[in-house]
Design a binder for these strands. Structure first.
Lengths: 188, 188
DNA sequence: CTTGTATTTCGATGTATGTCTAATTAGATG
DNA sequence: CATCTAATTAGACATACATCGAAATACAAG
């Protein structure tokens, strides 16, 4: 029932623990040293070290009665990277969008052709939606005009926009739907 | 008096906020949507969004009375990278140590020569200290023996170890000092 | 201007947890 | 075994903050 990402952030979200990590960056330290440096009592430091150890961020070796605590840099980096990975993936998806648009849209904004693959067509349709703001009504003629600034076949594209639930239609009047309604294969 | 790194971790260290970020990964969302998906009331979601906005992780655009909140992937990545950077630096220092040892120590453990530069000599001295455990006393003859397994000039190296406060000496008896005492140019 | 809806602000409440002192454990020393 | 020191554990306390209901705000639509 533990959420590893959450536990990692919780472990890092404390000023004292960040201080401990900072001190351990230079070299290993005893509990006493840490307590003195951070102006805390030994039990408090002990408590924080237990949390960091539970996350595998800190290891300890005993030497007589004192314990020398060291930072596990590899573990810290592994965890930090696991945070970055999902971000990198969505950014990669974004850059795919950019690539598709670059290949189908001319510099002057003309749509060179309508992509045959559904995935790429969706990306182009999202891009067309930039011309429609939420909360406004558009007559059919207005919709056609806006689309024709990019492509002659406004009828087809208009129907696609409605089919993807990006634009809604009633009595030849259209309006923008919220992105959360769009059927673009977005997950969740 | 704000600590940016701490504030970032605090912003991420909450289950509800991680959930919000997860949902915003797919597409922008309204407060209502988020509240329903996470089983929270709107005021609570609003509160969390304020915290995420303060960190620049989330942006909002208004559409009528509803506000569509979106994830700022670039900001998130920038922050995550600023976390990784200091780790990478200390790891680089570690790999420098490894490089120095590889060039001065033969495969059989023999020290080929004593580095002239203070920085590299310190690294080699730290490596020699692996043979001395804390809490034990060593007669001078024992220290010499241990060193001579790596290099013939035990007198020089022994004095260097004492000079760097890695070994302490009293009446021809030596013992290992805690790493925190070592004078190796380590910061803090 | 009034009504209705989405959101935010305010104030109260309960829980999680950072910190401390006191007591306990563990290891070294004699 | 008695003593000393370093660390941990236990328990108490205080504060931070996540959450909620109620009230206020913002905006659209009659």
């Amino acid at each position: 029932m533990s959420e590893p990402l959450l536990d990692f952030f919780k472990a890092m979200a404390d000023e004292s623990r960040l201080g401990i990590i900072g001190l351990l960056t230079a070299r290993e330290r005893s509990v006493q040293e840490l307590a003195r440096a951070l102006d805390l009592k030994e039990p408090t430091v002990s408590h924080h070290l237990a949390i960091l150890k539970a996350q595998g961020l800190v290891t300890a070796r005993a030497e007589g009665t004192t314990r020398w605590h060291a930072l596990d840099r590899d573990a810290l980096e592994r965890l930090a990277r696991s945070v970055l990975k999902p971000i990198g993936e969505t950014k990669k998806a974004e850059s795919f969008d950019a690539k598709v648009l670059k290949s189908f849209v001319a510099d002057d904004g003309a749509l060179k052709s309508i992509p045959a693959s559904r995935k790429k067509r969706t990306i182009v349709l999202r891009w067309l939606m930039r011309d429609f703001v939420g909360g406004r009504r558009y007559r059919e003629a207005e919709v056609n005009e806006a689309i024709q600034r990019h492509h002659w076949d406004s009828a087809t594209l208009r129907r696609e926009l409605v089919g993807h639930r990006m634009l809604a239609r009633k009595d030849r009047v259209y309006w923008r739907l919220p992105e959360s309604e769009w059927q673009d294969g977005g997950k969740a």
